[in-house]
């Protein structure tokens, strides 16, 4: 029996390239799309597992519009074996809970014999880090969040290094399990064979009906959270513009403020 890894990826707008419309919303047209950098970290660890275990298969999966096929092709070029696109108008507008539901239905109908699910720790366009945990609960499996490195693996269990701002831990987990990978600077340069494979491998597109998804739990209608308003952060303070004759006066003024701050509750 081959060892089956599912890597969930997400196509995200290149956040370094955000432009604003006059209505203070994000200009989506012409926005470059990339694979979420954390998901590339997940692909990197999946490939490491494939080197260590005989007969291991990596399947890349994403939910999104038809254009997201490009992300799956790229994942195959980077070394994944095949790709599935979960694509249905009824998925549009899904929040993290609805997304996790759709992904869990894919697993239940198409990949119930998986051994490991790998995903990025978070997506750079939402950075909520919710979907992996939410999915693990839907599948009733154990999870490790924020993994930096694979230490050891066999078919039955694996050992990972988890890192948070407070601790570094080595954790053993029995399969099937979900691992969220906190590596955002992985670079996988596809080689010529990767590109050929991406061109010749068909992406399987699955609809809500294909994965037996209850459409009352998907998309905008099936999402409990909704954006009430979006705005650019603003701070309004009564700004005093101060002018001084020289830097010496500026220094004196600042030192006065510092002393006031140390002596009184209010500056």
């Amino acid at each position: 029996m081959s060892f089956k890894i599912i890597v969930f990826i997400k196509q995200v707008p290149d956040t370094d390239d955000i432009r604003w419309t006059e209505q203070n919303t994000i200009q989506r047209e012409g926005l470059e799309s990339v694979i979420n950098p954390y998901d590339i970290g997940a692909i990197q660890l999946a490939k490491k597992i494939r080197l260590l275990l005989e007969d291991c298969k990596i399947t890349a999966v994403t939910m999104g519009p038809l254009q997201a096929k490009a992300a799956l092709k790229e994942a195959i070029a980077m070394g994944c074996d095949n790709g599935y696109l979960l694509c249905d108008k009824k998925f549009a507008g899904s929040d993290t809970l609805a997304t996790a539901y759709v992904l869990s239905q894919f697993i239940k109908t198409e990949a119930n014999d998986f051994d490991l699910i790998l995903s990025g720790y978070q997506a750079v366009d939402g950075d909520t880090a919710q979907t992996p945990s939410s999915l693990a609960q839907k599948l009733n499996i154990a999870q490790i969040t924020s993994v930096k490195e694979l230490i050891e693996i066999n078919k039955e269990y694996s050992l990972w290094q988890k890192e948070t701002p407070e601790v570094t831990q080595n954790i053993k987990i029995y399969h099937p399990a979900l691992i969220s990978v906190n590596i955002n600077n992985a670079e996988i340069l596809p080689d010529i064979n990767g590109y050929i494979k991406a061109q010749t491998t068909d992406i399987t597109v699955l609809s809500a009906a294909d994965i037996e998804a209850d459409i009352t739990k998907t998309g905008f209608a099936g999402s409990p959270t909704q954006v009430k308003k979006a705005f650019r952060p603003e701070i309004t303070r009564a700004t005093e513009r101060l002018s001084f004759e020289n830097n010496g006066q500026i220094s004196d003024y600042i030192i006065k403020l510092i002393n006031k701050c140390k002596e009184q509750d209010e500056v």
């Binding site: 750079v124 959270t225 009430k228 308003k229 979006a230 650019r232």
Partner: peptide, 12 residues
Amino acid sequence: TYGGKMMATIIS
């Protein structure tokens, strides 16, 4: 959201 470039108020 969007790396701090925008704020969103969310209801549930």
